[in-house]
Every structure is written in C-alpha cells, then in structure tokens.
C-alpha cells in the first residue's frame, strides 16, 4: 500500500491526546445512562483495545468518538478540540481524520468493492487515477484482489468485513476505530488484519479496537480499556 501524502504534523497539536473523555455520560432520550463517568485519554499514536461484554456500551462509546452521538454530559475532545464546540461545518474535516470499521460493515450494495473502498478518497475529491493503484493494492493485501469488481451482496461476511476495513484505512486516517473487526474472519486473516492495524499505528495513527476476542487482545502488548455496565472498570496506565 502506498501511503498518501499527508501534511507535516503540527508539533503543538501532536501533544494533545487524539481522544480525551472527561466525565462523559450518555443516555438515549429519557432512558437510563448507558455510559457513565468515562474519563480517559488515547494519546496520539497509541494503540488500545476496548473490551467488555455485549451491552457494556462499546459501540456507543465508539459512536461518541466518531461523533455520531453527542454526550449527555461531560467533555469529549478530539485532536485537542472540544467536540461540543465544534461547528457542524467542521465535522467533515474531522471525520476525514477518522477511519471507522463498523460492526455491520455499512458497505453500499450498489457499489463494487473497489468503489466502496475508494469512497473516502472520492469524497475527498481525489482523482480516480491517483488512488486506483492504492485501492487495488490494499484490496490485494486484504485478500480481495480478485473480488474488487464484486458487489457486497455476493461476498461472505468475512470478505465484507475486510472490505470495510480496507475502506476505513485507505485514506490513512490519524485515528482508526474498529468495532469487532475480526469477528467474521478466520484466525489467520484476523492476525493479518491486526498486522495492518499495527502497521498503521507504526506510521503514526492512533488505533482503538473494540473486540470480544481475548486471543486478539493477548496477541499484542497493548493497553486495554474495559467496559462493564457503561463504566470503565480498567483503564490504561498513564503514559
């Protein structure tokens, strides 16, 4: 995969954590709080796992990070900016810095795998000629080189998951968040995908992976955020 050019990092901004939660709570409507008193930092360039049983609030926490939801209380800052104070017009630029792997993939059925993966680059206004090789290379790397013309409906769950991961990483985001990214692939492919995340992290991206897979968590010496009933029961040691 050929890295896309990216501007030189702002050293002042680089000192800010990529993600900061300060006493964050979340409730849907008038229901009970499903996330309570979450306070943690994800330093820029760090790699974390997010674990916890089903219903613990992992996906909701990820939604707060990519700002699909606003917290009911508390402060969330991304790349040093308070998301509550961020104007709506700043969201696209923010989201381009974040790659998200959704648990339900969210691939567009009428687009081929190639076009799905290229979507972030197309939205960013890049010319097709400038990214076609990168997309093809990445698809080959995740084992979908022969399936790039296929539509998602004809792919297996594992193949769709790999396509979703490729879409999340194609634009080399500064922050990658993944919701159960290896849930539908065999262990060998799971390790291969984890290597992709590690490689992105080595290149400077902050990575947060939500997973049930204890084997995956143990395969890497990375700090773990553990959620239970909407609260953090373990958090990484301060850097």
């Amino acid at each position: 995969m050929t890295p896309n050019p990216r501007p030189a990092p702002d050293l002042n901004r680089a000192r800010d954590p990529a993600v900061r939660f300060d006493s964050v709570g979340l409730r849907y409507g008038r229901g009970p709080e499903i996330l309570s008193d979450l306070s943690f930092d994800l330093p820029s360039g760090s790699f974390h796992f997010l674990t916890g049983p089903s219903g613990a609030g992992k996906s909701s926490l990820l939604r707060l990070i990519y700002r699909a939801r606003q917290p009911s209380r508390g402060l969330i800052s991304l790349f040093g900016r308070d998301t509550a104070l961020m104007p709506r017009s700043a969201l696209p630029e923010l989201r381009r810095r974040i790659g998200v792997v959704f648990q339900d993939f969210r691939l567009l059925e009428h687009l081929t795998v190639f076009d799905n993966v290229a979507l972030p680059l197309r939205v960013a206004g890049q010319a097709r000629a400038s990214y076609a090789d990168d997309v093809a290379d990445l698809l080959s790397w995740v084992g979908l080189g022969e399936r790039m013309h296929a539509h998602p409906a004809s792919l297996s769950g594992g193949e769709q998951q790999r396509a979703a991961i490729a879409r999340a990483v194609i634009s080399r985001p500064e922050l990658l968040i993944a919701d159960e990214p290896t849930g539908n692939v065999d262990p060998a492919m799971g390790r291969r995908l984890l290597r992709l995340f590690v490689e992105l992290n080595r290149l400077g991206a902050t990575v947060l992976i939500a997973t049930h897979d204890i084997t995956l968590v143990r395969s890497l010496e990375a700090p773990v955020l553990e959620l239970a009933d909407g609260r953090l029961v373990s958090r990484p040691r301060a850097a």
């Binding site: 696209p92 989201r95 567009l108």
Partner: peptide, 8 residues
C-alpha cells in the same frame, strides 16, 4: 456512508 467518510 458518505457522511461518515467525511462528505460535507
């Protein structure tokens, strides 16, 4: 999908 990949 467009919104989440940064489309204004």
């Amino acid at each position: 999908a467009l919104h989440l990949v940064g489309a204004p």
